[in-house]
């Protein structure tokens, strides 16, 4: 088993496939027994330079269930940052008060830089448009749990595939497991060619669609994302396509019985509420899984598991 003690998690490529699987296995242990006070002598710093209530609560809940004390801030306006303190100085201060830093920052690359300044390990809770590796890990966990494994699956992704870092990371991770990819998006928001190139280089296949109905019969996972108005140069184009990628219970007719719908949340209207009651809805459990995965990461990085 790999020893993850003291290891940063900044980008999904920082961990090997084996290290991921190890975290997923540990996460399933925490799912069975979430409350284990194994970090009662540890301090976790949760520093959010931009608000992200959902991610912050998930991390802090994970830390609390392990008995760790949590310090930090969720509103940079209330800190000395507003007075122009550099990221360097803030990280240096915070790392002297804590055993582990969980950090969210609006700038790309801020987490990598923080990990080079900090004397304690750093978990990236999102750096600008760049990486959000714990989201990717909880996605993997959810896929593994609902499909009984990660290998040889048909993974469908729907919506904004151009700008969505979540889907890009998930493609990269699922390339380790012989997945076949199906991309459903409007023309303006297609998967970037660099991501498609990566799939080809891994010897795997992808298919592109504009019609959501086409992928329903064979998908093992349908990963929905939100289409944002501000991504369109032409507002009329947005109006034309926005409702084409709404998943409702009727659309799901004919899907595999084991198929699950995932979404990084929050959703707006891309998944109709009538899907919630179907056996295919998994997005709320998916969010819940985030807590177990974050528990596993913190425990492994702090060397207590």
């Amino acid at each position: 088993m790999a020893n993850l003690k003291g290891k940063n998690l900044i980008s999904i490529t920082d961990y090997t496939k084996e290290e991921y699987l190890q975290i997923l296995e540990l996460a399933s242990e925490f799912e069975k027994q979430p409350k284990q006070p194994i970090l009662s002598d540890k301090v976790v710093a949760s520093i959010f330079f931009e608000p992200s209530t959902r991610t912050r609560l998930s991390f802090e809940s994970a830390a609390n269930m392990l008995g760790a004390r949590v310090i930090g801030f969720s509103n940079p306006a209330a800190t000395s940052l507003q007075k122009g303190e550099s990221l360097h100085d803030t990280i240096q201060m915070v790392s002297s008060y804590s055993d582990l830093i969980v950090m969210r920052h609006p700038r790309d690359g801020a987490a990598r830089y923080a990990s080079e300044v900090a004397s304690v390990p750093v978990i990236n809770a999102g750096d600008g448009a760049n990486q959000h590796p714990t989201q990717c890990m909880l996605d993997l966990y959810s896929i593994q749990k609902t499909q009984g494994g990660l290998d040889n699956l048909n993974i469908t992704m729907v919506g904004d595939l151009k700008y969505g870092r979540t889907v890009h990371s998930l493609v990269q991770a699922m390339c380790n497991f012989n997945a076949t990819f199906h991309f459903v998006s409007p023309e303006e928001l297609k998967m970037p060619s660099s991501v498609k190139m990566h799939i080809k280089n891994m010897g795997l296949e992808y298919y592109q669609y504009t019609n959501l109905e086409d992928v329903i019969p064979f998908s093992d996972i349908i990963y929905m994302t939100r289409i944002q108005r501000e991504r369109f140069s032409d507002p009329l184009e947005y109006e034309r396509v926005k409702d084409c990628y709404i998943l409702d219970a009727a659309t799901l007719k004919g899907c595999k019985p084991t198929m699950k719908v995932l979404h990084p949340l929050p959703r707006v209207n891309e998944i109709a509420t009538d899907v919630d009651k179907t056996p295919y809805a998994y997005y709320f459990q998916q969010a819940q899984n985030g807590v177990y995965v974050r528990q596993a990461l913190m425990a492994a990085i702090l060397g207590v598991k």
Binding site: S86, L87, D108, G109, A129
Partner: peptide, 12 residues
């Protein structure tokens, strides 16, 4: 080239 890169914001 990324204007949102931390190296373009802080002295890095």
């Amino acid at each position: 080239i990324n204007p949102n890169c931390i190296t373009n914001i802080e002295e890095i």
